[in-house]
């Protein structure tokens, strides 16, 4: 498992757990606001990084190269 995937799983689990905490425990308002502002975007971001397709290893270099450097 590469580093990006490992970090994404970690962030996803923490984010979903925080949202569930706010849903079930009903903490003070400011904690709920903090959790929603930080962890809703992180949940979606980490979900996106986990769900996106992964290309072939040998093609990766071509995709990452910025073709317009030098302009």
């Amino acid at each position: 498992m590469d580093q990006l995937k490992a970090v994404s799983w970690f962030v996803f689990i923490i984010s979903v757990a925080s949202i569930l905490y706010a849903l079930i425990i009903n903490p003070p308002y400011w904690i709920v606001y903090a959790i929603s502002i930080v962890f809703i975007p992180l949940t979606i971001l980490s979900f996106g990084l986990l769900s996106m397709a992964k290309g072939k290893k040998e093609e990766e270099e071509d995709k990452r190269r910025e073709p317009f450097i030098g302009y």
């Binding site: 930080v38 975007p41 979606i44 971001l45 996106m52 397709a53 995709k63 990452r64 190269r65 910025e66």
Partner: peptide, 28 residues
């Protein structure tokens, strides 16, 4: 969300990813 995203060599990581999260943060 399902398509592959390639991270360009020229990208300023991890700021490159964080700034997209920032856009979501402000609208939430």
């Amino acid at each position: 969300f399902l398509k592959e995203s390639a991270f360009p060599k020229t990208a300023a990581m991890p700021f490159y990813i964080a700034i997209t999260a920032m856009l979501c943060v402000i609208w939430v």
